[in-house]
């Protein structure tokens, strides 16, 4: 198998292209490994690095220039910036609810209209988050209830 890497600042995003004459079990295995890597988030806690499954992540919160990743049972820290996480997680159903918070749509338990056109969001672990007015409108649009 020939491996070639094209490092070029003009490349807008990382792209993995597989050229092969036909599909083989090795290629399928390679693809599933890439998919697994792509759906993991590299985070750390108490000096240890973890590869977190995106499905476990409830929400991400930015605080004092740091990003914290919340699962049902633990809090991790990410070195990535909020906008980077937003780009990375968008395809996995994550979206912004305030300037400092990004959450997973599939982990929302319920929504409740709040004062000043905000939305109070209850997550699967019963934690409550607030979608600010601007992002609440976007959420309503996304849900098709605006």
């Amino acid at each position: 198998m020939k491996i070639s890497i094209d490092i070029n600042p003009d490349n807008k995003e990382t792209e993995i292209r597989i050229s092969c004459p036909s599909m083989s079990p090795e290629i399928e295995k390679l693809m599933s490994m890439i998919r697994v890597l792509d759906s993991k988030l590299t985070v750390k806690r108490e000096g240890e690095v973890f590869l977190l499954d995106l499905g476990e992540v409830l929400y991400v919160e930015a605080m004092e220039r740091k990003c914290f990743v919340y699962t049902a049972n633990a809090v991790y820290e990410s070195d990535a910036k909020m906008y980077e996480l937003e780009q990375q997680l968008a395809a996995s159903g994550f979206f912004r609810v305030s300037k400092s918070c990004l959450l997973s749509l599939k982990h929302i338990k319920s929504l409740r209209a709040d004062i000043n056109h905000r939305i109070r969001i209850t997550m699967d672990n019963d934690e409550q988050l607030i979608a600010s007015r601007m992002y609440a409108d976007e959420l309503r649009e996304r849900l098709g209830v605006k």
């Binding site: 159903g93 749509l105 929302i108 929504l111 996304r142």
Partner: peptide, 18 residues
């Protein structure tokens, strides 16, 4: 009504996403 509509839409989106 507002809350019911929002939650119904949420569950639909969650289902389709799943």
């Amino acid at each position: 009504k507002k809350n019911d509509d929002m939650n119904e839409a949420l569950h639909k989106v969650q289902k389709s996403q799943g």
